[in-house]
Design a protein around this nucleic acid. Structure first.
Lengths: 247, 247
DNA sequence: CGCGTCATTGATGTGCATCAAGTGGTGTGG
DNA sequence: CCACACCACTTGATGCACATCAATGACGCG
């Protein structure tokens, strides 16, 4: 057991967006040099989160949005009676913490599913700067709207799809986002457990597991633990749009 | 059959927020007179929608947000294969159309469930003015964040609650919002069909109906068609937090 | 008054949850 | 390096909540 000090979890690093390779994912495009420089001012610091650690928790004061630089997160909400629901999985380049804006308190937990690093962007500075840089203003609005639209999709999934459809949609969505980040279109490593997938999809972990097995039997995917290889993307797409008898 | 001209549906009226009694619901508080006057400039016109008519449709160009002045809407998303899902019900004072911001196109349909009137707020003018009036900027952010948080709640409901819990949560939510608008805490008139409730809650209309009947048997509510009287609010609250075996 | 729409209620079916047992991979301590 | 424990995952057997199918009833509107 090493004796690293506790504050390792909160280690901070000074950085800049202007030379960040994820810039096009989390920042607006088409800025001139002067604007870029001002954007740099937003990202005060970075913060490292160990696997299993939380970036923020339900009830904590909201001060900043976070841009994920590396790593993988889940966000989840909970009721008093112990029920909880994964509301999303977030990867590099995505913005996390939007839920905190309404009440100046976070309303969900953000947990790192692997060691991660985020850029801390104090929200008052975002607001300040987006009054001056219209591209940033527009970008902030679009990010929030995108999240709303994404959640509409999840509601559709949870409200009207069968287990196979849900898992197929989930895999296609994941691989598409990974592909946008330069990863394979057909191979992925799941960073979350079957139980977390199930929570997100409104299914029990056994059902997730069985559905994976079904896909394997049908030759649609290959699964070895958390390594998934999509053999037949079109089949997955057909499943998503199959509209079986259910519901 | 009357011969009213087609454009009745699009009838427009010149108006002002500064003397609107819903202002505190859809606009920021604590503005001075000069700021209020500027806000008035945002709401260019009003628009009337007949029951069953659409305010906007999936795929239509996005130009404006809408503040509901009177009436009741549902928003719903659909897949190519004909499946659809009600994503929300909106009432007076609520803002509708946020989904369109990301891609400059609406991604869902907004349908009036009764004759309605909305204030049309061109989004470019909202952005323009919110660069100058920080209270407006903050307000826009909070409205979007509130919608994100609301949808988290719906995901929790759809992903982990049983039929009774869903309907109880739905009724409590509706009556709470109506109460904030000066209506009764215990009586309400549903503006939507059982099928629309079911779509929103991820249930079939028969299940919604049966669950209503169950609540009636247990003396928790009285139901006569779309008129609902909540007899025992606490019982509903207990049901929401009951955490039965399911899921 | 008659028709269409919406709602209720019953009978039956099924998809997924639940319960349970066993496997494999990983990390830890001896 | 191995033994053990733990956790994630898989797979089977069973049950149940809700979907589906079907018939009837209650409004409301032209």
């Amino acid at each position: 057991m090493n004796r690293a000090p506790v504050h390792m979890n909160l280690q901070t690093i000074k950085v800049a967006c202007s030379n960040c390779n994820l810039r096009e994912l989390c920042m607006p495009l088409g800025l001139n040099d002067q604007q870029l420089q001002r954007i740099d001012e937003i990202v005060a610091i970075r913060r490292k989160i160990k696997r299993g650690g939380t970036l923020f928790r339900n009830g904590e004061a909201f001060t900043s949005l976070f841009a994920i630089r590396t790593g993988f997160f889940k966000t989840c909400v909970a009721t008093e009676d112990g029920r909880d629901q994964v509301t999303g999985f977030q990867m590099a380049g995505e913005i996390i913490g939007l839920d905190g804006i309404v009440n100046d308190r976070h309303t969900c937990d953000a947990v790192a599913l692997e060691d991660a690093e985020v850029c801390v962007m104090p929200f008052d500075r975002i607001e300040e700067l987006s009054r001056e840089v219209t591209a940033l203003q527009s970008h902030v609005h679009k990010i929030m709207s995108r999240e709303i639209v994404r959640e509409h999709g999840v509601m559709l999934l949870l409200g009207s799809m069968r287990a196979e459809e849900r898992l197929a949609a989930f895999l296609l969505n994941l691989v598409q986002r990974l592909h946008a980040r330069g990863f394979s279109q057909s191979e992925l490593v799941l960073r979350m457990t079957r139980e977390e997938i199930g929570s997100y999809l409104g299914l029990k972990l056994e059902t997730v597991s069985r559905t994976f097995s079904k896909f394997v039997e049908e030759g649609i995917v290959e699964v070895k633990q958390r390594h998934v290889r999509i053999v037949d993307t079109d089949a997955l797409k057909r499943i998503v749009n199959s509209q079986q008898a259910c519901h």
